[in-house]
Simulated assay, not measured.
Amino acid sequence: MIRLRQLAVCYWLQLKILLFSPFEGFLAVVFPLMFATAALLVYQVSGDPEAMLYAAIGAAAMGIWTSQTVSASTLVQRERWAGTLELVVAAPTRFSLVLLPITFAMATIGLYSVVATILWNWWLFDVRLEVENWPLFVLSILMATITIALFGFLLSVTAVRYRTSWALGAALEYPGWLLCGFVVPLDLLPDAVLPLSWILAPTWAVEGMRASAAGESPWLDLAICGLVGLGYAALAAWLGVRLIDSARRDATLALT
């Protein structure tokens, strides 16, 4: 019960901070609309309504991915710059339990981009999102949000020991659009990179969104998405303990 209260309080406080952050506001409000516009302008050339709908669904998830990869990977770095990382590491609460609710708060902000992108696509490109099964479509969006948050959790943990690892999130932003099948079908990708797509949970979540929109069953995609997300959480929790313990043991925990 105490752990749940700590997670809830940390989540709520971070969510309020993010809501008033100019950087997060710009990242969540402006970026998704820019990316969706660029993607749909490319597909508009073909004049294929099905292709436009395919891109519109993928563009709706792109905002969550962007807000998470960039923000979560710089999360620890921002604490380092503020001089508060030592306090976070030294706190009685496990380090991973401090980072986890913060990444979930970031993903919650990213949920706005889904609604904004859907409305933007409708108003600007007249692409109406026709969904056969709305409950499963919403569930797929929530699965995408949760698993992307867990992926951000994994990224943020690595930055506690390696200062330059924050750049990994920025480097993954645009390749992730392709590898997760947001705007390009996975069938068009080289076979050599498909395993990378399979270990990214958003790949399966977006497939679930498309299956739900088409009236097909998304359960297999969502089950795989959930398992991959749990793998992220387990790996991040293990790394969080190992990296900090290693740094303390070797007296190399240079945080500032």
Rank of each mutant, 00 (worst) to 15 (best):
V183R: 12
G176F: 12
W219Y: 04
A213P: 13
I17P: 01
L53M: 11
G229N: 06
V184C: 07
L196Y: 07
A251E: 12
G231D: 02
W123D: 03
Q68I: 15
D126H: 15
G215Q: 09
V183S: 10
R94M: 01
S73R: 08
V98D: 09
I109Y: 00
L27V: 14
T117I: 02
G110C: 00
E86D: 08
V206I: 13
D187L: 00
I199A: 14
I109L: 03
G229T: 03
V184H: 08
C10S: 14
S113V: 07
W122P: 01
P22V: 11
A105P: 01
S212K: 10
L136Y: 10
E130L: 14
S212P: 09
S96K: 03
M62T: 09
L235P: 01
V76W: 04
G231C: 01
G208E: 05
A171C: 13
A91M: 06
L136V: 05
A233N: 01
L253V: 10
A36R: 03
V89M: 00
G83M: 12
T69I: 08
G63F: 06
D187P: 00
A8W: 12
A254S: 14
A107Y: 04
E207P: 09
Y11W: 04
T203A: 02
V9C: 03
V30N: 06
S113C: 03
T117G: 07
T117H: 05
M52Q: 15
A211F: 10
L87D: 08
F35M: 04
R161N: 01
R78C: 02
I141Y: 00
A201I: 03
T84Q: 05
W166Q: 11
M62A: 13
F20L: 14
R242P: 03
L155T: 06
R80T: 13
I141E: 03
F23S: 13
P175A: 12
W123V: 12
A107S: 06
A116I: 01
D48K: 05
S46T: 07
S46R: 09
L155C: 03
T66E: 07
G208N: 04
F95Q: 00
L40M: 13
V115Q: 02
A254H: 13
L189P: 08
L33G: 07
T66K: 07
N133Y: 14
I118V: 14
A170S: 04
S46D: 09
A8L: 14
A254E: 15
V193P: 04
L200I: 13
L155N: 05
A144H: 10
Q44S: 15
Q6T: 10
L253S: 12
E50D: 11
M62V: 09
S96W: 07
